[in-house]
């Protein structure tokens, strides 16, 4: 019989493989302390044996990407492209697709009324450029008018971002990203343009 048993702090130290030599010797001789130590060790061993299931190897990179994206989302200024219900990337691609496709269509089909109009329009430089556009509209040039209207609409949807972000291959990607409804709308726009006199 021992007059004094080990404190919980010392017991814990012994359980975790520490403790002073006299304390460990005490545990060897004292049945009650030894029972305590054995029970605590068994509990700890059972608890320690439970491991976290390893997630998919792809998970770690996915987690990093999510974190990076959430930080970027927080830092990015509220963009006009983020219209209600339409993700920003989708909105940008849609506009890029429309603008590029229409520009291509107009370039292929549009015949200027006369060379003087072409000369006026060929160098849209600052305010002079917009004056030239006004001239073209006044002259009833529907192809250019269509582009001007499109530009006005697109400007409201962050045209600057759109033009600045155009990269090779973006039009193809944008067209592939369009939904059926968006694709139908684009075809409608192009067909309308193609039906214009002089196309």
């Amino acid at each position: 019989m021992w007059a004094r048993h080990l404190s919980r702090e010392v017991l814990l130290a012994v359980v975790e493989g520490g403790g002073d030599v006299p304390d460990r010797e005490h545990v060897e001789r004292c049945e009650r302390c030894r029972r305590d130590v054995d029970a605590l060790r068994a509990t700890l061993a059972a608890v320690r044996d439970v491991e976290v299931p390893e997630p998919s190897p792809l998970f770690w990179d996915h987690l990093s990407a999510r974190i990076s994206q959430s930080i970027a989302d927080e830092e990015a200024p509220a963009s006009a492209a983020r219209t209600v219900g339409v993700p920003a990337w989708r909105s940008g691609l849609w506009l890029t697709g429309v603008a590029t496709a229409v520009a291509l269509a107009v370039m292929v089909t549009w015949q200027p009324a006369d060379r003087s109009t072409l000369a006026t329009l060929s160098v849209p430089n600052g305010e002079a450029g917009w004056d030239a556009e006004a001239t073209a509209v006044e002259q009833g040039d529907t192809g250019w008018e269509f582009l001007v209207n499109l530009a006005v609409v697109a400007e409201e949807e962050s045209w600057g971002e759109l033009v600045g972000g155009v990269q090779p291959g973006m039009a193809d990607r944008a067209l592939q990203a369009l939904s059926d409804a968006e694709r139908t709308a684009l075809i409608g726009l192009l067909e309308t343009e193609m039906r214009q006199p002089g196309s």
């Binding site: 919980r8 702090e9 814990l12 359980v15």
Partner: peptide, 16 residues
């Protein structure tokens, strides 16, 4: 922390 740990292990032993 040590006291919490001690009580935690004892509680785990009881719960298990």
């Amino acid at each position: 922390v040590k006291a919490n740990f001690f009580h935690a292990v004892r509680n785990l032993r009881r719960l298990l």
